[in-house]
Design a protein around this nucleic acid. Structure first.
Lengths: 112, 112
DNA sequence: CAACTATTTAATAATATTATAATATATTTT
DNA sequence: AAAATATATTATAATATTATTAAATAGTTG
């Protein structure tokens, strides 16, 4: 069935959208505030180039993981689906378990 | 703090490991069985080249998302952390919501 | 131990992602 | 309406990921 393949592709696209440090940091920043955060504040907090941040926001927007509203000159972003937060928590939990097993950080530092 | 950055990198590496259709399919196949599945069966079910599959398994192994045990000639794989299943379910749920909003499949087919 | 089976690893060419730099758009202020 | 501000888009060179092919391991069976 061809639709099944499309859905799998959508899932991997979803994960691909999360698969970059800057985008993880964007989501964690948006998660912390709970409410809307403007791009200008993200630039400040994450300390990345404006253009680069904008591209990462664009990738998250395309997957509809975040949405934006324009307020005057500013654009406010927020996480669209609360499930995204759950996913972030679960990853945190998996890493925590890996730490307990003494695998995580050492491996990460070593083999890349 | 430098450790924070390492952790963010680990999270994005985790997502990167899930960010490929074949690897999503591997996990869904392992999730279905619940128990161990050998490589030979994955080749059959997913219909991918043996060598290519092995590389994808390697990527999932490096992130300790799956583990393997050797039984005779065969290598049996299984999902290591149940949280991975939760994550897959949440993604499914997000996509389902996007479908309800009529956004998902059309967008996916359109803009890539 | 030689042939066989199951799987992994290595090399590589094609493709995709990324950061940077430059430019464009849209809103506000003067 | 020109200047200023906030953000987005485009082009591109550097880097990373991928599928394919070929070769290497490691167990098993005769």
């Amino acid at each position: 069935m061809v639709v099944e393949e499309q859905i799998v592709a959508m899932k991997s696209d979803f994960f691909k959208a999360l698969a970059h440090p800057t985008r993880v940091r964007i989501l964690e920043r948006l998660a912390r505030n709970g409410e809307e955060v403007c791009v200008c504040e993200l630039i400040e907090d994450l300390g990345v180039e404006q253009s680069n941040l904008s591209q990462h926001l664009s990738i998250l927007r395309k997957q509809h993981i975040i949405t934006s509203t324009k307020v005057g000159l500013k654009v406010m972003y927020r996480i669209k689906y609360p499930e995204v937060l759950t996913i972030m928590e679960k990853v945190q939990k998996i890493l925590a378990q890996q730490f307990q097993e003494g695998e995580a950080l050492m491996r990460h530092l070593a083999d890349r």
